[in-house]
Amino acid sequence: MSKSLKDVIPVGHTYIRDNVLEKDTLTGVSESKALWAKDLDLPKKAEYTFFAACGYQHMKYVEAMMGALKSAAKVGVGMGKVVGISKVFGKLGLDLTSITAKITASKDDPYTPVLISTVNILRKLGVEVGYLHEEEPCCGSPMYYAGFEDDYAGHARKNYEIFQSFGVRKLIGLVPACTAALKTVYPGYINGYDLEVQHLLEVVAQKLKETGIKPQYKERVKVVYHDPCQLSRYLELTDEPREIIKSIEGVELVEPDPEQCGKWSTCCGGGGLEATHPELSERIGVRRAEELLETGASVILSNCPACDLQLTRVTKKLGANVKVIDLVRLLDEALA
């Protein structure tokens, strides 16, 4: 008896791979990619190109899909057995259209505005960015982390050609996983890869220093910063976000145990794990939230769509009196 791909690889991962390869998005929802930017008047060509990525735009769908997955998971997913999940995801695929129809109708989406805030911040700091609008590809990094190396390499080469055809030289990324992929993984698969990739926080930290602008937040808050894994250990950005938070007037930064922040920050369990091991993912999330809540902060800041989603959900589940805000949105308000 020969085992096929779907017997061995969790269906959550093959599902995402098919979405990326066929529809060039994370969730397979064929929504216009540039909807968020329609009022921003971003040029296609500029010195810096903003890479908006699927993450923040599709998080609202992911949230609904994961909700459906978890309610279906009561049928017996247990410790993340591959077979159990495949059944659940089979059901999920059928319901996808009705789920997304519900979402598109609701305006209650905290994730997409992060992209608008990013452009606002860059403009306030004097950086004009371009954006590829509908032509922006999905970076495909979920495929890489799921082990689909050949598919990923092909996708990366195709993307590099797209970037070249638009004359892109310098990219500013926002979603940590995509930025890390573009910066550190792509060069291993593409000959003569020459794109200069920076994360938004690097640019912002540097510009804040150069311009001497002092952001001011409307109220006094005690915040704790959750380092997303991809930022702290893949891109090694742990000082920049803290510099930025400390520069905001009215915001007091508290830290959890030194073994749980910075480059030792604990993973929140969000992202890809949710698609394959939802229950384990939630337990990890609860453990991370408890570490953060111990500091007594009233706001948890993060800077990753997966972490935002995961921490929002687990803090709600714990009934904690705490808000989860993306660092970018807080900074945008403080710069007004």
Binding site: I9, P10, G80, K81, R233, W264, S265, C267, G269, G272
Partner: peptide
């Protein structure tokens, strides 16, 4: 078996805390 390996390997979050 491959199924057992799959369950173990795909439960990793690839957070790299171990690697550090």
């Amino acid at each position: 078996s491959e199924e057992e390996l799959s369950t173990m390997l795909y439960a990793c979050t690839t957070c790299r805390r171990c690697q550090e």
